[in-house]
Amino acid sequence: MPDHPLERLYDDHASALFAFAVNLTRSESEARDVLQEVFLKLARRGALPSGLREERGYLLRMVHHAVVDALRRRDVRSRAEDEVRADLPVFAPTPNPDEQAFRTQLSAALGELPPDQRAVVHLKLWEGLTFERIAETLDIPPNTAASRYRYGLDKLRDRLRPLYEELQ
């Protein structure tokens, strides 16, 4: 049992927050910086706000804000690194070659999506949030969340369909 509430939050949510951060930043070091910033803010506040409906959604929102700041700083630094980062594998490696090929192509296809669409697709597919919850997390209208998801998913389908049918 974790002794401190912060430790409990880490054990429960850090993996999901890391996946969201690494998918948006495409950089493990930046994802670490983002998570560090989030947990530092939580430590300074002492506790999560009272009356919180869902911890995960609140923490994902904090991560998104930190990622937006990090991407803004990166835009100032250099844009050339983004092209390299698009190929960063964000999925776990697997010994199955077919599965590995699918994951590699999916990772690349996600990297080609605009960050706004990628955030919505991630929250919908890997966090299972509704468009309403996604809208609250990302500070956008629900309809915008839905349209971004459809655009993003169509791009992923176009990119992955040939390999997917070949693997079937």
Binding site: S15, A19, V22, N23, F91, A92, F102, L125, L156, L160
Partner: peptide, 11 residues
Amino acid sequence: LERRIASQPFR
């Protein structure tokens, strides 16, 4: 395809 995408584990 959507289900397969969603089932991929992140690192």
